[in-house]
Design a protein around this nucleic acid. Structure first.
Lengths: 212, 212, 212, 212
DNA sequence: GATGAATGAGCGTTCATTCAT
DNA sequence: TATGAATGAACGCTCATTCAT
């Protein structure tokens, strides 16, 4: 009755396996996010990067925040799984520490873009303070558990408080990653990576001080 | 008889010392930035917070980027001065380390908003990769210098590479601050602060490991 | 072994009598229209309400305009048939008037949603001026015919112009309905309805004035 | 720091008396509304019609709804003032009725676009059911007061309920306007208008029926 | 017939920036 | 200097419409 919007052409491109699209969009979002940051990441960019129509992104993800949350949760879940596995409290502390650093650096080696997004963008830009806080506490909690068990086994110096150690380890890990992201550190090969990891772990275990 | 156009020429408010305005705007920018984050900080917010006309912000700072650059440089300069003083390479390492951590936590105690801006907003969200990188390298450079001198004096374990130690210390400092910002740590009094600082320094110096 | 593409060919649901679908969609459109108004009525809403696939609505009705036209025409046709029957010019005016008002209020009693759509949405919001005008003229024409015959039989005061009477009667009927829709009037039972109807007819026949 | 939006030119056209702009926008909104209806009225249309930049409409009115609310409230306030004055309960009913109809038709004569907006668009399209209802009740309340006083003075037939009379009068007035809007009635001159008004009032006072 | 993924123009809203006064 | 009205590009989101299956 009232004049509708002008009819516009439309077409569903055939060849694509349908549900692959969702993944393609997610991957595109990761790339754009890595390239332009949270606030610079426009929905149109994601669509273009995914080779997909604007509206399709909304079809799958509802809105920008939901999309980026999804990007983030997927990455974070995987990341945390690795962390938890490495921070197995029943393993001797030195071994656990090396494993932990390796997991983190490995993640960087395999998917630098995704890690960059995790570290530099979403964990900070999105979701507000409370979200960031939850994540911080989640990972610190895992690390703290590891230190508490280690202390119970007498592997920790008495003066070291588990909570503080966890916070500092978090800092060390994050900064190692930041150094990767910023280019100061870039373990391209497996041996390089292991050397870097054991350096970090060593320093963390025994401190920097020569004097006992 | 005809309606006159009402135009208040809006002369400069008498009571205001002219150049104080600039500082007021800068301070307002810090507060807004702390409250709403980099991207949530609108020029109009800053103007309102400063109790100043919209256009005046542009008078003094040209544009949003320049304003925030200025906010940042001011804070960062002060911060770095403190860091440099504490990281005096000729001081014994343990002492220097404690001083360093104290400077950082003190900054937090005195101006939590400004530090929050430095840590969570500008250093990360804004300025693009290259800017962040420059800052990271600046501070890591200072720390590295400290470690190199310490090593020359034999205060460092041989296995510890100064560059890596610097990166990790940066991480520890940053994370200590992050913990403050996120509320996990909040040294309200001087003694509390010193206890936290020496805990960080201790751990960093001697590691977490009980085994020699 | 390779993941098969999952594609349910989605054959026509067995239980559904094929052309019933069309009616289901129409009925759904009425409900959605009543609930959300013309502009709030999305094609997807209609499809969901009808329990039918998105595209099917287009299969049957081509586009939104056509769908709503159809909804409207169906309702309007039925409504006008009732009006015409009641406004039988050969019936004595008072009787005709009461019948007319009854038809209108009855319609409301039986299908308040459909009437709400007719009165508040389509007749006003949609279709542009010309459409509304056609409808107005159609119904006024019928009423005018009734008054002209009544006048020919000497049932009308000489001073009353048939056209004006028709317009005013239209207004009275419409407003009675509007009062129903808005809740000021709500004849839930048959006796209530008849009392309301005869009140309207009475007032219209004899005016409000005590003085002759 | 982060790249700001590209700088775009801007200019405040000088010659215009500043606060006149607001009125110009309001007037433009009335025209666009009259032309295209509530939902067809785009903010860009209003801006263009007012000869004003897009953003300025938001500067003055905040958002579309607020703009149209303002348009509406202004018109409605004026309209209701006229209604209240005419429906003075202390005036003899016939006189009051004629005055009432005259006010309504006069409003139409002077500002057909504004009235069209009042009657056909805003009172229906905007604000949802509850808003419409409030307006309906406001005007019916005024009319009802008039009828109740008239009844107290014995000017009303005993059988006529004031509330119902008010509703029907509302209908008569509205439909008279609708007839104007739709072109069935168009009192261009003062005498024409008075004739139409007294016709409506007469019919309402004495009914259509010849039989006593 | 039936399905729903895909398309993209359009609209409301924001906000950095300019400039007449 | 100081003011704040004026500008308009940009972006998130909606939804009518199409079409491969």
């Amino acid at each position: 009755m009232a004049a509708q919007r002008k009819r516009r052409p439309a077409a569903a491109l055939p060849g694509v396996p349908a549900a692959e699209r969702e993944k393609a969009i997610l991957a595109a979002a990761v790339r754009v996010l890595a390239r332009k940051g949270y606030h610079g990441c426009r929905m149109s960019d994601v669509a273009r990067e995914a080779g997909v129509a604007y509206g399709l992104v909304y079809h799958y993800f509802g809105n920008k925040d939901a999309l980026l949350q999804t990007v983030f949760r997927a990455g974070w879940g995987q990341f945390m799984a690795g962390i938890r596995a490495a921070a197995d409290p029943d393993r001797p502390l030195p071994e656990g520490l090396v494993a932990l650093v390796c997991v983190v650096l490995e993640a960087w080696r395999r998917e630098p873009e995704a890690v960059r997004v995790l570290i530099l963008e979403i964990a900070r830009g999105a979701g507000g303070r409370s979200y960031r806080q939850r994540l911080f506490e989640e990972i610190v909690g895992v690390l703290r558990g590891m230190f508490e068990r280690a202390r119970a086994r007498g592997e920790l110096r008495a003066a070291v408080e588990p909570k503080l150690a966890a916070v500092l380890l978090f800092g060390a890990l994050e900064t190692a990653l930041t150094a990767c992201v910023l280019g100061s550190l870039s373990p391209r090969s497996q041996p390089e990576l292991e050397r870097a990891a054991s350096g970090v772990a060593e320093t963390f275990l025994h401190g920097v001080c020569a004097v006992r």
